[in-house]
């Protein structure tokens, strides 16, 4: 029971991370396509400015909770996915640095360099998170000792790649919706056109991803055994359709929130299919790490549950306050064009 509660919390933390940092990552990928001059680029940076750091902490929390509640899963997941995780890490480091360093020197070459770094440093983590999670859904080649027998190329299999591209495009749409809120004039029109273009692409990719999930993974076994779970993909689909309706109605905050719900539901959809597994072995079912054999002691799980139940609502409360405080676009002086 305690283990199952932790499985749900674990999924929730990753899902919240995707919902929140998703728009930063997506905006970083969109920036070179949408922002055509220094003013527009600064508007895009300002749209991420107060938020990205607080969003990224959800990744630290998700990683920390994996470590605390399912140490064996943390150990195997992070060592097996060594190369992609370190590339993800380098991406996150460079992303943060590009925000900070870009502004500090007024030189167009310097800024152009960091704009490029910023693009790559958002694209790579978004892609790799998708690749990693798709491979987790599919199962990875680990033996009973937790030793990984695959390779980086092996992780870039067709399902892994589709998962990666799916994540990137979903995050781009999430970022485009956010930019509509945070921009005006020409840039806002471009962001609206971009969101309108990306929405059907996301629908197509969702279809492809679900179809391949059926052919490449055992995720749907849990759904057949317990059809009530189908509420999750239905919720995801509902969120995506509502996003489109709200976008047409011009209610952008609602559109963004519905799209967040879509991301949340997609994450829960995939991870629920793993239960009771966390890391499935594609070599030997006995090598899979489950909530039973991978969880921490009941005492640790109880204490951590108390910590999370008290602290996460507090964190959410002050982060909501912060989002409301900065709900209007930051002022970007138009004169700084060159």
């Amino acid at each position: 029971m305690l283990e199952t509660i932790w499985f749900i919390l674990w999924t929730l933390l990753w899902a919240v991370y995707f919902v929140l940092d998703g728009f930063d990552l997506g905006l970083g990928v969109l920036q070179p396509f949408l922002a055509r001059n220094e003013y527009e680029r600064r508007v895009v940076y300002a749209a991420e400015g107060p938020f990205w750091d607080g969003n990224e902490v959800w990744l630290i929390a998700a990683g920390g909770v994996t470590f605390a509640a399912f140490p064996k899963a943390y150990a195997v997941m992070f060592s097996a996915l060594y190369a992609p995780l370190l590339m993800l890490l380098f991406g996150l480091i460079l992303r943060a640095v590009s925000y900070e360093f870009r502004e500090k020197v007024e030189n167009s070459l310097w800024r152009g360099f960091w704009d490029f770094v910023h693009f790559v440093a958002n694209l790579v983590p978004a892609l790799l998170l998708g690749v990693a999670f798709a491979n987790l859904f599919q199962g990875i080649p680990i033996d009973v000792k937790g030793v990984f027998h695959g390779s980086l190329i092996g992780l870039l299999n067709s399902y892994g790649l589709v998962g990666g591209i799916f994540f990137v495009v979903v995050f781009m749409l999430h970022g485009a919706l956010w930019l509509i809120i945070k921009s005006d004039d020409r840039l806002q029109l471009k962001a609206i056109a971009c969101a309108n273009f990306l929405w059907p692409v996301v629908v197509l990719l969702l279809g492809l991803f679900l179809w391949m999930t059926k052919t490449h993974t055992h995720i749907f076994d849990n759904y057949m055994a317990n059809p009530a779970l189908f509420a999750l993909p239905v919720l995801a689909l509902g969120g995506l359709i509502a996003t489109r309706l709200m976008l047409s109605a011009g209610r952008i905050w609602s559109a963004w929130a519905c799209h967040g719900l879509f991301i949340l539901a997609v994450t829960f959809f995939g991870v629920s299919g793993l239960y009771p597994g966390i890391i499935l072995s594609s070599l030997d079912p006995a090598a899979s790490i489950t909530v039973m054999n991978g969880a921490s002691s009941p005492l640790t799980l109880k204490i951590m549950l108390a910590v999370v139940v008290v602290m996460v609502p507090i964190v959410i409360a002050y982060q909501v306050w912060m989002y409301r405080l900065f709900k209007d676009p930051l002022e970007v002086p138009k004169t700084q064009e060159y």
Binding site: G49, P50, F51, D53, G54, E56, V57, I60, A61, G63, G64, V65, F67, A68, A69, P71, K72, Y74, A75, S296, S297, T300, I303, M304, V307, V308, M311, V312, V315, Y318, Q319, M322
Partner: peptide
């Protein structure tokens, strides 16, 4: 991980969120 992982997870939820959010 049962002990060490918990301390790191508490660090993130109790302290690091606070620091990062209010710095912004």
């Amino acid at each position: 991980g049962d002990i060490f992982g918990s301390l790191l997870a508490i660090e993130a939820t109790v302290a690091f969120f606070l620091e990062s959010t209010f710095l912004a």
